[in-house]
Amino acid sequence: MTVHPRYTQTIAIFVLTLLTVLTLAVLVFIIVFVFGKGLPYISYDFLFAKPEDMGRSGGIFPTLIGTVILPLFAIIIATPLGVGTAVYLTEYTRENRITRIIRFGADCLAGIPSIIFGLFGFIFFVTTLRMGWSIMSGSLTLVFMILPTIIRTSEEAIKAVPYSYREVSFSLGATLWQTVRKVVLPNALPGIVTGIMLSIGRSIGETAAVIFTAGSSLRMPHSIFDSIRTMSVHFYILAREGISNKNAYATAAVLIISILIINLISYWMMNMFIAKKTK
């Protein structure tokens, strides 16, 4: 029995449409659901007041600080390492044993689940290096987690810079370092920024690696060796221990909004860059 291709096509398109609508519906539902339940509880006080009674009432201010500080420190450390690695791999060396080992390391690191980073951060930073549950331990653990992303995206971005730009730069008397600094990196910037934004997003959403290294103290930190709780960890504790569904929804909504803002910023920067180039 053979079916006419036109009927197969009709059936296939029908099934595809159905599955796509289902997929998009589920994904949209998640955002609408969280916003519907959470947005009404978000207020100035919720964002900028101290939590009361384990987070049952009051605000989330310390966790907001934690959510800004932890990714920020991680990015400040990981960006030079990641971009430096990418520049080394693309500009300063040719494919050889060492570059293969470096790439292999980055690939493996990218595949490691966050709970393993948590375990490692706990035994290495918290225990062995005696940093305790702290901003320091948490950020350093995040550095390990986001480094491969930054290396990969920077490398792709650097490779996408036309070779002719480098040739022109050399022919105008630039050294390799001047070429990297004045021609390669500026033109790879949008890609590098995208990688950084991705990493910030991932750090904000991370729970497993953070809870075992930065701890979950709700007090305001006074130094980088104090423990801190991020919004994701706060949300997890609120939801998991059934402390307050209302505040959990509100925290989740704030989390999604932060991610949204970060995505918007990276799109905006990207467009700015493209516009500036052809002004």
């Binding site: 949209v28 998640i30 955002i31 969280v34 729970t207 994701s232 989390l255």
Partner: peptide, 30 residues
């Protein structure tokens, strides 16, 4: 099957969803 202009809004939405913290998905599951 989708025109270019529609993709311009759908793709960023999908990328936003990739960025939603996993705990939020877990909570919706519960």
């Amino acid at each position: 099957f989708i025109p270019q202009w529609a993709m311009k809004t759908i793709k960023p939405t999908i990328e936003l969803l990739a960025g939603i913290p996993s705990v939020v998905y877990g909570f919706i599951g519960v």
